[in-house]
Amino acid sequence: MENKPTSMAPIEYSTLDLEPKHQFEAISQAVAPICELKKPHSVGNGFRAKYSAFDLDGIDIIDWESEKTNSERSNELVRKSDFDNWAIWLVRSGYFCNEYDDLSVKANTNSLMLVSYAEPWKSYWQGRGFVSVGLSREKFSWMATSLDEANRSVLNGPLTGLLRTFISTLVSETHRISEDQKQTLSRSFSNLLAASLEPTADNLYNATPALNATRLTIAREFIRKNLGQPELNVDYICRSLGVSRRTLYNTFDGHGGVAKYIKTARLQACYKALSDHADLRFVSTVAYQYGFTNMSLFSRQFKELYGFSPKEAHDHAASNHVAPNSSSPTLLEHLCKSTSCSGSQAYDAAH
């Protein structure tokens, strides 16, 4: 029997386990080596905060939820601290403001802000959640110049959306990451970040697996949400996602092509509905819901995939019919199975 890699559990922390009067002091002590928290008067006695932390081979990923607060990394703290890493803050809701001297930078929901802990700053947080991606100076010394130049800025560029999706997916799949996969994912993130900050030909080539996997994740999610659109096709996806046909074709290269993926995803959705004994809709109703307008074609394609007709699936929903395992690989799985790709594909993915 094959032994599957054991996933690594993240470190969880919550002030909700404490009495309200001790909550703010507890979270303040937890972040004291990095910054000083300042509790707003409007918060009251308690301070709800929690985080989930995970080390990805030199990259510290922390998923935060907390009350609004202000924080400061003072000159004194910078001098006595040996913590001089960078961090990327992904704002999930609300906004972040970072200030130093006369410079103020604001990151709104879904924005990425890069900050350096080698310099002092003040920040104002208003919202419910954000992700901090810590970048160790030792691991990222090879791109220190690019990171320092981007300090206290909201990241912007053709690859920013892909970087944001990559970070969000890492957070959502943290519980599935094994020790054996950490290095691959860490390298993929590093290459994607380098290409985002400085999209040279070499950086884009090195980031190809991450670019392709993240593009695929975005496209698959879009397809899943739009299966009921009869006009769902290559042109519709390209217009909606703002990518070229060539980029989209490259994204699904090795996955049977875009049209086949859409057809299979629709058939999977129909099978799930038809095999649900609590779903009493007609076969034709389910088929139309997921974009099939030709019932004869739908029945033929369904039987080719599953070995039995849609009517049989519907009539015997409570029986032992089991569909083949046709789930798509996650971003994590796709990256860890990826092989090298051409530099031209990497360049196409960025434009």
Rank of each mutant, 00 (worst) to 15 (best):
F166V: 05
R152K: 14
V78F: 05
L114Y: 02
F166P: 00
S141K: 13
V131Y: 01
W125T: 01
D102T: 13
R176V: 09
A107T: 01
E119C: 03
W142P: 01
N98C: 12
E179P: 04
R152S: 08
C97T: 10
D148Y: 09
L77K: 09
N156K: 15
R164L: 08
S196T: 15
L192W: 04
S132E: 09
W86Y: 15
G94I: 04
L114H: 03
G134K: 03
S116P: 06
T169P: 00
S111A: 15
S153Y: 03
V91A: 04
N108C: 10
L112N: 00
Q183R: 14
R176I: 07
S74V: 05
S178P: 06
L192T: 03
Q181P: 01
D102S: 15
S81I: 01
V154T: 09
A195N: 03
S136M: 07
S132L: 10
V91T: 04
N110S: 14
V91M: 12
K122S: 10
S123Y: 02
G157N: 12
N108K: 13
S111F: 07
R164K: 13
F166M: 10
V154R: 06
K122P: 04
G134I: 03
E72Q: 11
R187Q: 14
D101N: 13
S153L: 08
K106W: 06
R152W: 05
W121D: 02
S178I: 13
G129K: 08
T184D: 15
L103S: 10
Q126Y: 09
W125C: 01
R176K: 15
K122A: 06
S136C: 10
L192K: 01
F96T: 01
R137F: 04
Y117R: 02
E99H: 12
A195H: 02
R152G: 02
Q183S: 15
R164C: 05
D84S: 14
W142G: 08
L193D: 00
E72C: 10
V171R: 06
A194S: 13
R128C: 06
N75D: 09
R187Y: 09
D101Q: 11
S116R: 02
S71H: 04
L197W: 04
E149D: 15
E179N: 13
S146V: 03
G94F: 05
W142I: 06
D180Q: 14
W89T: 00
S74C: 08
G161P: 00
Y95T: 04
G94D: 07
T184Q: 13
E173Q: 14
R164Q: 10
G157W: 07
G127W: 03
A194H: 06
D101W: 06
S74K: 06
L103P: 00
E179T: 15
T145Y: 10
L170P: 00
K80I: 08
K106T: 13
L103R: 13
Q181M: 15
Y95Q: 11
L112G: 00
K106M: 13
Y100P: 00
E76S: 10
W142L: 09
L155G: 02
T109A: 12
L163S: 01
W86D: 01
N85M: 06
S153K: 11
N151P: 05
E76K: 09
W142C: 11
D148Q: 15
K80S: 07
L192Y: 03
D82M: 08
E99S: 15
R137A: 07
